[in-house]
């Protein structure tokens, strides 16, 4: 519990505290803030959606009921459509490209892009690249034809599934495991750590390593709350957050690789694509870019592609 006189910072997120990349990072932040800023600031983590889920947490933040959150990037398209960039398929070659873009001037601009709506982006946290799984082998994009894929609420992801001939399905997250297992839906897309953590691999024929998209998070706060902090306190807090971000983002890749290995050792099937097969997926999904380039801005797309080319 916090001492009197300390600035209480509530951090609500939706994962566990010790296995998910976001949960681990949040726990580390909590530990460091409470150690190093003892007496000034007190950070309380509310994991597992116990306080708010990702859809509600930004509303609560604007109300001033919670100070920190780290929803996935697609949740921010309600604030500015630029964030649709991160949902576009095959926009980034790998997690290094994502990292480089987020650290570039274009990426850092996006942190400030929601100030007039009351949100201040503080840091990007990685989860990893998305893979695709279904109840049959997915090698060519045509294999996805007619399959029902569970997707998150996002117009981009819906368009992406339609591009490969799949039928996008919306359902409550708590129903997904059962729905995959009983065959109500056929497939889904997620990062290795999520596929392992939610045991989706158990109820799928296999996972295909497509690396077709990313799931990352944005640590955000309320603009007015951040401004209300004394400058030294704010500086110290942001420094700790920066250090946690850097150290955990380096580990995110390893966390996902470990999850991938764990899936294999638990008896899950992982399928690789060769260069030609992968190019088929790229070609099939690419038209989605045209639909949303206006929302995202061609300059941002070009910047991301320049980074891909340089790696």
């Amino acid at each position: 519990a916090c001492d009197t006189g300390e600035i209480v910072v509530k951090f609500a997120h939706v994962t566990n505290t010790d296995k998910h990349p976001k949960g681990i990072a949040a726990s580390l932040l909590e530990q460091r803030v409470n150690d190093e800023m003892n007496g000034t600031m007190c950070l309380e983590v509310y994991p597992n959606s116990t306080l708010y889920n990702d859809n509600k947490v930004l509303e609560a933040m604007l109300q001033g009921d919670v100070q920190l959150a780290a929803p996935s990037l697609s949740k921010f398209e309600k604030f500015t459509k630029q964030f649709r960039l991160f949902d576009l398929p095959f926009m980034f070659k790998n997690i290094e490209a994502v990292d480089a873009f987020q650290g570039s001037a274009d990426g850092q601009d996006m942190l400030d892009s929601m100030q007039r709506r009351g949100l201040q982006g503080l840091a990007f946290w990685h989860n990893g690249m998305k893979q695709m799984s279904a109840n049959k082998p997915l090698i060519a994009p045509t294999d996805a034809n007619g399959l029902k894929f569970r997707v998150q609420s996002s117009d981009v992801l819906v368009a992406q599934m339609e591009a490969i001939g799949g039928s996008p399905q919306k359902m409550a997250f708590s129903e997904v495991y059962g729905a995959l297992q009983q065959g109500v839906v056929d497939g889904q897309e997620n990062t290795w750590s999520n596929i392992y953590g939610k045991k989706f691999f158990e109820v799928q024929d296999g996972v295909t390593e497509t690396n077709h998209g990313i799931i990352d998070y944005l640590v955000v706060t309320n603009v007015d709350w951040l401004e209300s902090l004394d400058a030294p306190v704010r500086e110290q807090f942001l420094t700790i957050l920066g250090e946690v971000t850097e150290s955990r983002n380096k580990e995110a890749f390893a966390v996902n690789e470990a999850a991938k290995a764990a899936i294999v050792s638990a008896g899950g099937t992982i399928r690789q694509l060769d260069a030609t097969q992968r190019q088929q997926w790229v070609d099939t999904m690419m038209p989605v870019w045209d639909t949303f380039s206006g929302d995202v801005g061609q300059d941002k797309i070009d910047a991301a592609q320049a980074i891909n080319a340089g790696l």
Partner: peptide, 21 residues
């Protein structure tokens, strides 16, 4: 606590919006 009446009212709606089951 610091919570406002507005957030209590929000919870009333959240009962449905956040619990699809």
């Amino acid at each position: 606590s610091d919570s406002s009446l507005a957030s209590v009212a929000g919870t009333l709606f959240e009962a449905f919006e956040g619990h699809f089951t």
